[in-house]
């Protein structure tokens, strides 16, 4: 780079005949090279890294092609106007409108923002997740999963790995998590109005619910007091008394103490759940969690 610049400079100088040519013929040690590079690097460091250039500011950018490719990538057919609307952030639409007003551009057609679509999409996603999880989990677990899967953080993550970072029209770049999440929700709604609810639900299943892969439901939903929660559950099942037993213990009175507690049904002496912990109380709670999972997990693969 530097060589090229110096070459350009020298050739320009030679062409302009400003300096006598014999200067170039001198074959000394080029003592100026190192200090120059050092100085350039110092200045470079002082200025800091370049701001991230948005992808749309590049010369090779065609928004129509990108939208077409997006549809093909996810394997869905969108109506063009819905998809375009879904990718416009509210602030962006406002800012553009103000700018047009300021410039006095009367032919400007204000863009619709995705606020409406996003709220519709949120409903679709939320309801479908509920539908899926209620088949095998009780209401409170389902609600926790619904909230987790429709959180901005998770949907933003999904949107990012669908390539929406470059497609979303937003004021800031790179777009914030909330912007991305809204765009994703809006896309679900756009799909619903283009290809029907069934396709939209399939889309949610393949891109959102899939994020539960490798995650444990009980990491997302944990009762605050597992033992009390278990007792409430067991009462509904007709088990009134539970007998916690200390099954095993090791390294007692040390910092690495470990206890294993099993919860048994007092009536038929059957094991309900077993758990470990560094104190008996913690072990009892983990045993209760285990028992709750055993009650809930009966019909699940997890």
């Amino acid at each position: 780079m530097l060589c090229r610049q110096t070459l350009n400079l020298t050739s320009r100088i030679i062409n302009q005949n400003l300096i006598p040519i014999q200067f170039i013929n001198s074959r000394n040690i080029k003592r100026w090279v190192s200090p120059t590079i050092k100085e350039i690097n110092r200045r470079r460091k002082k200025v800091g890294p370049d701001p991230i250039k948005p992808r749309y500011s590049y010369l090779e950018w065609n928004y129509d092609v990108e939208l077409y490719c997006f549809g093909k990538r996810v394997g869905e057919t969108f109506k063009d106007n819905f998809l375009r609307e879904a990718l416009v952030q509210r602030e962006y639409a406002n800012v553009e409108e103000f700018r047009a007003e300021k410039e006095g551009n009367e032919s400007y057609v204000p863009e619709e923002s995705n606020t409406q679509l996003a709220s519709e999409g949120h409903k679709i996603i939320y309801n479908y997740i509920g539908e899926v999880y209620l088949k095998s989990y009780p209401q409170d677990v389902t609600t926790a999963i619904q909230n987790y899967l429709t959180s901005d953080k998770l949907l933003g993550h999904v949107a990012k790995y669908l390539g929406l970072t470059d497609l979303v029209k937003s004021v800031e770049y790179p777009p914030e998590t909330k912007t991305l999440a809204d765009a994703f929700k809006a896309i679900v709604a756009a799909l619903e109005s283009s290809s029907g609810l069934e396709r939209a639900q399939l889309f949610v299943k393949d891109f959102v619910i899939v994020q539960m892969n490798g995650k444990d439901v009980y990491d997302i939903w944990t009762p605050e007091r597992p033992f009390d929660y278990l007792m409430k559950l067991l009462e509904e099942k007709g088990i009134k008394e539970v007998e916690p037993r200390l099954c095993n213990q090791s390294a007692v009175n040390t910092i690495l103490a470990n206890y294993q507690v099993g919860l048994y049904n007092k009536a038929d002496k059957k094991l309900l759940g077993i758990g470990w912990g560094e104190s008996v109380k913690i072990a009892k709670d983990t045993a209760a969690l285990d028992a709750i999972q055993k009650i809930y997990c009966k019909h699940n693969s997890n």
């Binding site: 997990c297 009966k298 019909h299 699940n300 693969s301 997890n302």
Partner: peptide, 10 residues
């Protein structure tokens, strides 16, 4: 167990 799909993760 398999018929009632209670086998859990395989």
């Amino acid at each position: 167990q398999i018929a009632q799909s209670q086998e859990g993760r395989l």
